[in-house]
Design a protein around this nucleic acid. Sequence first.
DNA 1: CTTGACCTTCCCGTCACTGGAACCCCCATC
DNA 2: GATGGGGGTTCCAGTGACGGGAAGGTCAAG
Lengths: 129, 129
Amino acid sequence: MNIGDVSARTGLPAKTIRYYEDINLIKPMRDDNGYRRFRDQDVHKLNFLGRARALGFTIEDCRTLLALYEDETRASADVKQVARDHLVQIETKIADLNAMRDTLSHLIDACAGDDRPDCPILRDLGGKG
Amino acid sequence: MNIGDVSARTGLPAKTIRYYEDINLIKPMRDDNGYRRFRDQDVHKLNFLGRARALGFTIEDCRTLLALYEDETRASADVKQVARDHLVQIETKIADLNAMRDTLSHLIDACAGDDRPDCPILRDLGGKG
DNA sequence: CTTGACCTTCCCGTCACTGGAACCCCCATC
DNA sequence: GATGGGGGTTCCAGTGACGGGAAGGTCAAG
């Protein structure tokens, strides 16, 4: 399979697939003409990566998870720890964003949104001034 | 005031303040020795920027908001629109993160987390395989 | 033989900074 | 006068995870 087929099959842009090879996440073969040749196991890995990325894991997390995936003697505790650390990151982000949303929506509610210059949003940003 | 004092007063790193000058968000004076000299209005602007950034506004949003802040003839509707657009972005991000969190926490709950290799997390990432 | 779709590498740009090198300025102390 | 330390300055490179686009090689169809 060439990169275009793999891209269609995995939903990953060709650029992304090349990037993943660059950083040694996958190692496709090469045809004589220099084209990458992907085997099923490469496609499988790419699907794995796509799903892990969709769950917000960093590339380095993906590298770790992929190594665990390929290690038949792994302990599920190791996988769980990576996932739990990531979950904490996500929950922290959610909390930050919720705080922003609350502040912002209060300010928006308080703003008349008409053609007059008076604006609680700017007043708040300007420091209650 | 020199940049160090302004940094202490605004809580913004000196690097960030220089960066904001680079991209023309602020225009501090210069002393004869080349040092930046900040007036109260510069500090005020930097505080504005710090608060806007803390609410997650992009730098370009901040530029817009700052221009509106300084425009006595602004319409509050313009400010409100910028804020509402940003709120949509935030809520989209929150929804994405919530979806990740839900999936991830289910997988974590399903994982024994012991020394055996069997792991629902990897099974899911590997495509139910 | 040419067209057009595909593939290749390479380099720059994104966003909002951060780190670090190399250098200048000013004040105090020995 | 030398020195030391704590400011300040510029400029360059790196971050994460790609995306855009140039310049060029390859291949099947007409």
